[in-house]
């Protein structure tokens, strides 16, 4: 069981949250000019990193707010929790 520090509610059990996948994927600024390949990359392709990974979680059974987590996908260690809009640690995220 992961213990996740919600930035709004504090540490809670993993089952209060839902995992939202890779963080910091920016929606294309000019979607009308995007090629099919660029759409595929935006919609489907993921870093799926082995190691430190910036990802989104939502506190579904709590404040229901989204936030970002830096979690190691090998050890499950969480080293940082930060709010939407804040920057990922250098070298992480997209």
């Amino acid at each position: 069981m992961l213990l996740i520090e919600c930035p709004y509610c504090g540490p809670r059990d993993e089952c209060e949250f839902h995992a939202g996948g890779e963080a910091h994927i920016a929606r294309p600024e000019k979607p009308e000019t995007l090629s099919d390949a660029a759409w595929a990359d935006y919609v489907f392709m993921r870093k799926n990193t082995k190691g430190w990974y910036a990802e989104r979680w939502v506190h579904s059974a709590g404040c229901r707010r989204w936030f970002n987590v830096e979690r190691n996908t090998v050890t499950h260690e969480i080293r940082r929790v930060y709010r939407v809009g804040e920057s990922p640690t250098e070298g992480e995220g997209s």
């Binding site: 069981m1 990974y53 996908t73 090998v74 499950h76």
Partner: peptide, 13 residues
């Protein structure tokens, strides 16, 4: 398990 992992283990829930 809903989260990404390479750990070959999951959570008890």
């Amino acid at each position: 398990d809903a989260y990404n992992s390479y750990a070959q283990r999951g959570s008890l829930p």
